[in-house]
Design a protein around this nucleic acid. Sequence first.
DNA 1: AATAATTTTTAGGCAAGACTAAAAATTATT
DNA 2: AATAATTTTTAGTCTTGCCTAAAAATTATT
Lengths: 218, 218
Amino acid sequence: MFSQSEENYIKTIYHLAAISDKGISTNAIAKKLETKASSVTDMIKKLSDKKVLVYKKYQGVTLTDFGKRTAANIIRKHRLWEVFLVQKLNFTWDEVHEVAEQLEHIKSPKLIDELDAFLGYPKSDPHGDPIPDKDGNLPQIQKSLLSTLEKSEKGVCVGVNDTSSEFLRFLDKQEIGLGKNIEVLDKEPFDDSFLVKINGKEMTISNKVANNIYIQKS
Amino acid sequence: MFSQSEENYIKTIYHLAAISDKGISTNAIAKKLETKASSVTDMIKKLSDKKVLVYKKYQGVTLTDFGKRTAANIIRKHRLWEVFLVQKLNFTWDEVHEVAEQLEHIKSPKLIDELDAFLGYPKSDPHGDPIPDKDGNLPQIQKSLLSTLEKSEKGVCVGVNDTSSEFLRFLDKQEIGLGKNIEVLDKEPFDDSFLVKINGKEMTISNKVANNIYIQKS
DNA sequence: AATAATTTTTAGGCAAGACTAAAAATTATT
DNA sequence: AATAATTTTTAGTCTTGCCTAAAAATTATT
């Protein structure tokens, strides 16, 4: 059994590994967890002893299969709770994260299985991120950052990269959300912004925003 | 804001105060929390500094109004989660306690208000214990221990004193539960056991069991 | 290749919350 | 009232998880 702190490290390393492919550096973990590199070194040693990850001094860490399964399980809980909060308790997609950060540490296999059933076995959370199954398998859907689309390409919004309240509330204000149809009408080379049509409405979107919206091309 | 450990002390002192009326002793707290008296002394000092309780050396503790409100709020969360687990996630009344012990520490006012609404503002938990309102008021229903009833008195089972899985599963086996009609047919002076009729069925109940069942007399 | 800059680790400490053992205060008993 | 028994507190330790400062290793730059 892992402490909340250990679980947070495991989850963070899993997320970092998903984008980096090589060993995860002490500094990267420290930055993500808003802690110090020396604290990370301490924890890494402990998690290495517990067979969660492989660690060689000065060379970053890699999760073991056991570590990956553990991480997927925490993420599964996090995302199921997010679905619960939005679907049953009237939370908005920008409010769920911090509560789910707490709920993900509740220990009870029955609880999470029953919650999954109660919610109708959802496949993804309110931000479009896939929910791992009980064995830790994470179904990956085909998606592209809006910023990588070419002129006249189109598709459906299926996820976001940045899940901060600020960004999500911005999207709400622009009426951009999961399931919306998006078409790139033009790209502006000067500032790499996009002219897009979202559910029939034309608007300009900055490169920074386009870099945080996932599209399933059609 | 209080740590989980602080919350557990506050809740425990509140429960002990409900049955004792005078100051709660260090030893009583230690026993209930399965810890050592010296640890209790440490924590008591901290909670006294935080204005949760009043403490004078060697004289036990009393919760302040602030402490009582804090305790009621924790208990409110605990009991609402228990209702959720039974009503929505197919938990039985003997399974809910330990999960609710974890869930009661989740910090989010919106979460608990929405949960309350989602459950239809329940008045009591699966064991018949009343749920405090948002201001910490705890409605007390009129109830008597089955063991205090006289021959030919009757009523409805509205609660249990012992909420251990062992006792609750025993009640399930005997088909005794909240809402059942109970009538005392006879009392046996030899071992203080009871001959009762429960929903039409006659059975003998030991004094120990009768001491843990609450009846609303009719 | 040597030096500079950066990253990572080590060493030593701190706070929370628990513990043991011993001292002090209170309560019970003779 | 004096002694015994019990309760409570103090003093000192331990673990977890964090910190700072300094040392060591790695990587980048000249």
